[in-house]
């Protein structure tokens, strides 16, 4: 089995993995970071979104071995001390989550979106979230949260 070394939420990790192990399986089962979720099998729902070297990717559509040498951030890495970051806080303030299952992926995508475009319009946010499906909220409060989170992150 190949051995990989990578940084996950700031921690240096070296592990053996099978070639076929998906990054999301590695994160959830090997590293026990269960905040990253699996909601589909056709790369559409976005619940598994993590950051790979600062960019949002779907961890169900990447092999763990491909992350060798990379820096990965998962939802657990955003609030290591339990204090919500401004985007997480905005989701809470705007009721941008209900069941919470899509939420980690949604927030990881939102953080990347705001990093690419710190002052997005509502249309840009709605379009920018097209790789993430939420079945609970009707998106309205998610969009409000991302716009507000972006503002808080700017200041």
């Amino acid at each position: 089995m190949p051995e990989i070394s990578l940084t996950v939420n700031g921690e240096q990790i070296t592990k053996s993995v099978e070639g076929r192990t998906l990054l999301v399986e590695f994160i959830r089962e090997t590293l026990k970071l269960t905040g990253t979720h699996i909601g589909c099998d056709t790369s559409q729902c976005g619940a598994c979104t993590v950051h790979l070297n600062g960019k949002a990717v779907k961890s169900c559509t990447m092999l763990a071995v491909q992350a060798d040498g990379a820096e990965i951030t998962t939802i657990e890495g955003l609030a290591p001390d339990g204090r919500l970051n401004p985007m997480q806080q905005a989701f809470k303030d705007h009721h941008g989550l209900q069941c919470g299952f899509c939420t980690p992926g949604m927030i990881m995508r939102a953080m990347a979106l705001v990093a690419e475009n710190p002052e997005p319009t509502e249309t840009e946010v709605r379009h920018g979230l097209e790789g993430n499906i939420c079945r609970c909220t009707g998106y309205q409060n998610i969009v409000a949260a991302v716009l507000d989170g972006a503002k808080a992150l700017r200041s």
């Binding site: 970071l33 979720h37 939802i75 657990e76 609030a79 339990g82 809470k92 989550l97 939420t103 980690p104």
Partner: peptide, 19 residues
């Protein structure tokens, strides 16, 4: 009132059956 469950959901600490 803001939700109590949000803290764990927002930080990846929800506990769903697959967890």
């Amino acid at each position: 009132l803001k939700r109590f469950e949000d803290q764990r959901f927002l930080t990846g600490r929800g506990r769903y059956v697959d967890d």
